[in-house]
Amino acid sequence: MNNINDLKSLELTVGDVFSKNARLKARNVNVFYGNNKAIDNVTIDIGSKEVISFIGPSGCGKSTFLRCFNRMNDTIDSCVVQGEITIDDENIYDKKIDVVPLRARIGMVFQKPNPFPKSIYDNVAYGPRIHGLSENKEHLDVIVEESLKRAGLWQEVSDRLQSPGTGLSGGQQQRLCIARAIAVSPEVILMDEPCSALDPIATAKIEDLIHELGNDYSIVIVTHSMQQAARVSKRTAYFHLGKLIEVGKTKEIFTRPQHHQTEAYISGKIG
C-alpha cells in the first residue's frame, strides 16, 4: 500500500526522495489553507545528520512544508495537513502525540531574528526552563554557556549575559536564536531563510555554524540563495507551485538538473 503511494509521488518527483538512514519521513503530504492547496502530494526523507536545502520560487510552499515538521501549521486556523510525517517512525500527526515535546525535539529558526525582549541569558534559558531540563542553577548556566558556544556567540556576549537580547546586532540576534533552539538539545533543526535579514559577513558566520551543526543534527534549511544551498548542504530539494519537482545531490542539481523546471529556475528563468 505504502509502496504504491510512494510510486505515485515518484512519478512526480525526479531524483531519489528516499534516504538510507532516514530520520524524518514525509509521505504524500498535502497542505491546505482553506480551499487553497499549498502543498501537493510531497514525499521525501530527511536523513539523520544531514543538511538539506529547500529551494524554489517565492510562494511555492517551502515554508509551509517546513512548518509541517514541527506542526507549527497548527497555529494557523485555516491550515489543514494531510498525509503522514514520521520522526523515527513515529507519526507526528498521530492524535496521541503531544506537540510540546515534539517541538522540543524539532527546533526552529525563523527568517527574521526574533529574540525575546529579555536578557541574553533568559533567552537561551527559556527552553530548558519550560521543559525542566536543568537540575539546578549551575546546570542551567552550563547549558546556556554550551549553547552560546556552539552557536559561536559566547566570546561576544560572555561579559554581558544580563543585557537585553534585542540589543544585539542582527547577525548576533540570529545566532542567539540558534543558541536558543539548540539549548533544548533538539534532534532536528528547521531553518526558514535564516540569513535573509543579514549582511554577508553575518551570513558567512551562520553558514559556518550550520556546517558545523550538521555533524550532530539533521538540518533543513529554506533558502533563496543557490550559493548558500551549495555551500551548506549535501542534498537539495526543488519545489514549484506546491509540488516537489526534484531532489538530489546539491552538486548535481546545480550542475546537471534532470527536470526542465529545475533547470529553468537554476538558470534564472523562473524567479
Binding site: M72, V99, R103
Partner: peptide, 11 residues
Amino acid sequence: SLRDAGYGLGS
C-alpha cells in the same frame, strides 16, 4: 514572531 518563537521551542 515572538509567539512563533515560543511555540517553536515547545511552549
